[in-house]
């Protein structure tokens, strides 16, 4: 049997998967907008508590990682496999930096007793509790997606090293890139909703 190969088909499948991811977060965005309409003042106060500097820094890091991902694919298209590996490697590392900063932020919140169901959070007005509930759910789920994306790209790296992905056949790398860009795009929406809510 001749190996069946349909690059367009596999990209179509990936785009459909991305649609499901957007709708997954879509449910959370609905919850957010409803709750924000219900508690505008509380969301304003709680949003002021977040560290916007760290949030914006993280945005730059993720955008840069998307750039290095895109460049990695371009390098692959041009047959510069070494560059491609380096750039995809950079993407994974930037993802790690993002997670570290996120970790610092979460740790600070926990340190201040701001986590779901904590003694302090139960003393806050209801709207602020909901704000933090959404903050931890949405950034947490996004964080899981970053980890998943790093996992996917690491697999891509291994496949590149083993010659399974090469300039003649790199649809998988493009699909991995699409996933990474999605993770990036979702963050771009999370930033204003939480960090710039105040």
């Amino acid at each position: 049997m001749v190996e069946h190969r349909d690059d367009f088909g596999s990209k179509l499948g990936m785009w459909l998967f991305l649609v499901t991811e957007i709708l997954l977060f879509g449910g959370l965005f609905i919850a957010y907008s409803y709750m924000r309409a219900r508690y505008p003042v509380e969301f304003h106060h709680a949003g002021a508590e977040l560290n916007a500097t760290l949030g914006v820094t993280n945005t730059f890091i993720l955008l840069t990682s998307s750039l290095s991902m895109a460049l990695g694919i371009v390098a692959m298209q041009r047959g510069q496999e070494l560059w491609s590996r380096i750039l995809v490697g950079c993407t994974v590392l930037l993802g790690l930096v993002f997670l570290c900063i996120k970790g610092v932020e979460w740790a600070a919140k926990f340190h201040h007793g701001l986590y779901p169901d904590s003694a302090r959070i139960l003393t806050l007005p209801q709207g602020e509790r909901i704000f933090y509930g959404l903050y931890f759910s949405m950034t947490g789920l996004h964080g899981l997606h970053v980890i998943a994306g790093m996992g996917v790209l690491s697999v891509m790296l291994v496949m590149m090293l083993r010659g399974r992905i090469h300039p003649g056949h790199y649809t998988l790398l493009e699909n991995g890139g699409l996933y990474w860009h999605l993770v990036d795009v979702i963050w771009i929406f999370l930033l204003p909703l939480f960090y710039l809510a105040a």
Partner: peptide
Amino acid sequence: PVLAITLILVMLERLFGIG
């Protein structure tokens, strides 16, 4: 996916009480 996120929220609610 909308069901998926709803069910995740129920799990988070039961495990961590996000509210």
